[in-house]
Design a protein around this nucleic acid. Structure first.
Length: 277
DNA sequence: AAGCTTGCCAACCGCCCACCA
DNA sequence: ATGGTGGGCGGTTGGCAAGCT
């Protein structure tokens, strides 16, 4: 039996969201929080599918989203993570605060892919294009040259002398030593197999442990006043008096956790909403 | 100026998985 | 154990804008 559609197709609007719809959705989320997306359209007075509401919120309306193109550091990180994780965009996005999986996926397809091609790197394998072609022709060969294979294509394969060697970053491609994976620690024994596999890599291991990224990350998400101002300014032509409604409930419940009190105060001041709490 | 092509990205679609009764 | 449901994910599409001829 097929799965039921997430909503009644009849009478459900599709296509670009209007400012009015955005306003309704944000107002609802800020008032009620994120709950039962299927019920959201009805309760918010929207003729939209619940799924559509969720996507609109997570990909566009969330106040903690960054705007604009990925910067160089973010791009580099995406490439590095993609080399290890493959097309697991949500996992990649989870390590880039303020970025969505959709945004990263789009950026990958429109910008990074081309860049890598120009650099002579196969975006699928992260190997030099020439080598990739050769590998495709000789896929049965059991060479032991370090390969960068998206993890999604490498699932259920445990590392070992008779198997594929671990995924590595572009930077590490020349210095990789398969023997590195043999070391272990007490902590690593509690990790899933995949995590143990990557235990020597602080970046990848933090993904498995759901930790915050280590300090080696070049970026630290500190939303600037400018970014946050532009979010509100670009979302609607006018200031948003309805935002006042949100002062009566926990602002930290609605995705503002990344801002400290001073920053929130600054934002509200910039919106001429001075007397908040 | 008009028509065509290309690039970008918001939004949709369908599948998958976790959770719950 | 099973089936229904909600939410998440990745792939794809469609519309718009900019650039080109």
């Amino acid at each position: 039996m097929g799965r039921q559609p997430c909503c009644d197709k009849l009478g459900v609007k599709k296509g670009p969201w209007t400012a009015e719809e955005d306003k309704k959705l944000i107002n609802f989320i800020l008032t009620n929080g994120q709950c039962c997306w299927r019920a959201v359209p009805k309760l918010a007075g929207l003729r939209r599918c619940g799924k559509s509401c969720r996507l609109r919120w997570t990909n566009y309306l969330r106040p903690d989203l960054k705007r604009g193109l990925l910067n160089e550091a973010e791009e580099k990180l995406v490439i590095d993570l993609h080399a290890r994780l493959g097309n697991r965009w949500s996992k990649i996005a989870s390590k880039l605060p303020g970025r969505t999986d959709n945004e990263i996926k789009n950026h990958w397809n429109t910008h990074i892919k081309k860049k890598l091609f120009k650099m002579g790197i196969d975006p699928l394998t992260h190997q030099p294009l020439h080598n990739s072609e050769t590998d495709n022709q000789n896929s049965q060969s059991d060479h032991q040259t370090p390969q960068i294979i998206p993890e999604s294509e490498n699932q259920n394969q445990s590392p070992g002398p008779n198997n594929t060697v671990p995924l590595i970053s572009l930077e590490e491609i020349n210095s990789y030593s398969p023997t590195d994976q043999n070391s272990s620690s007490d902590e690593s024994n509690n990790l899933p197999d995949d995590a143990k596999f990557y235990e020597n890599d602080p970046l990848i291991s933090c993904l498995f442990k759901d930790d915050d990224p280590p300090d080696l990350f070049p970026w630290q998400f500190q939303p600037s006043q400018e970014n946050f101002d532009s979010f509100w300014a670009n979302s609607w032509d006018e200031n948003c008096p309805w935002l006042l409604d949100c002062q009566d409930f926990g602002i930290h419940d609605f995705g503002f956790d990344c801002f400290n009190d001073v920053e929130i105060d600054n934002v509200l001041k910039s919106l001429d909403v001075g007397n908040i709490q």
